[in-house]
Simulated assay, not measured.
Amino acid sequence: MHRITGAAALWLLTSQQGALAHPHSFISLQSEVMVADGHFYALKMRWTMDEITSADLLYDAGDAPAGSEVWKKLAAEVMANVLGQHYFTEVWHNGKKVTFRDRPTSYSLARENHQAVLSFVLPLATPQPLAGQTYTFSTFDPSYYVDMHYDDDKDARLPADLASRCTLKVTTPTPGDEVLDFANSLDKADAPPEDMNLGKQFAQQVTLQCQ
């Protein structure tokens, strides 16, 4: 049986899952707004992959110690795929999409029990002012092959010194029956039309609002 490479394992699963409805893979998100000099300049991300999604990455890593060249190579492969999808993330301000730098300022891949954890800092192309401003951001796979979600609203965080001036709110959408039925009709070999942006319809939205 052909084994999926570590780079692809971020959003592809082994054939053991069979033909099931979308999504096929699950990633638990944590994010923290990074601030300096009154400006929002980056998101600190932590993505924990489910055990099946993690299996190939952990197999490739073997018994290599944390921080070794093996882990660095795997991290680079996974990060390259994430970059190819614009970090799977959108940030919006005043109806306009905020752009990102084309490389993370740091990233790493690690093992936690039977799960792979990707951590990285997603830098905005230009730091954005916070005072009196509202931003929204969301992380999702457009195809909805991967369900990317916050297990708890508290997994989207603010730095402690910003808590008195800003709030974060996580909103979880409720797609209609037609969208749910369509997602349930897809198997592993199917891909929804690109213009449908299926994953975005399931994506949680985080709202950052500052005084």
Score class of each variant (00 low, 15 high):
Ser28Val: 02
Ser28Lys: 04
Gln30Val: 03
Ser31Leu: 11
Glu32Ala: 14
Val33Phe: 03
Val33Asn: 04
Met34Ala: 15
Ala36Val: 13
His39Thr: 14
Lys44Ala: 15
Met45Gly: 08
Arg46Leu: 05
Asp50Phe: 05
Glu51Asn: 02
Asp56Ala: 13
Leu57Lys: 04
Tyr59Phe: 12
Tyr59Ile: 06
Asp60Asn: 10
Ala61Lys: 03
Pro65Cys: 02
Pro65Trp: 01
Ser68Ile: 00
Ser68Val: 05
Glu69Ala: 12
Glu69Arg: 07
Ala75Arg: 08
Ala76Asp: 12
Ala76Arg: 09
Val78His: 07
Val78Arg: 07
Met79Ile: 01
Met79Gly: 03
Asn81Phe: 05
Val82Gly: 06
Gly84Asp: 13
Gln85Arg: 08
Tyr87Glu: 10
Thr89Ala: 10
Val91Cys: 10
Trp92Gly: 00
Trp92Glu: 03
His93Gly: 02
Asn94Gly: 09
Gly95Asn: 10
Phe100Cys: 04
Arg101Gly: 00
Arg103Glu: 10
Pro104His: 02
Thr105Gly: 13
Thr105Asn: 07
Tyr107Asp: 06
Leu109Gly: 04
Ala110Met: 00
Asn113Pro: 06
Ala116Met: 13
Ala116Gly: 07
Ser119Glu: 15
Ser119Cys: 13
Ser119Tyr: 00
Phe120Ser: 09
Leu122Trp: 07
Leu124Thr: 08
Ala125Leu: 05
Pro127Phe: 12
Gln128Phe: 13
Gln133Phe: 11
Phe137Gly: 01
Phe137Tyr: 15
Ser138Ile: 05
Phe140Asp: 00
Asp141Trp: 01
Val146Arg: 00
Met148Thr: 06
His149Thr: 04
His149Ala: 13
Asp151Asn: 12
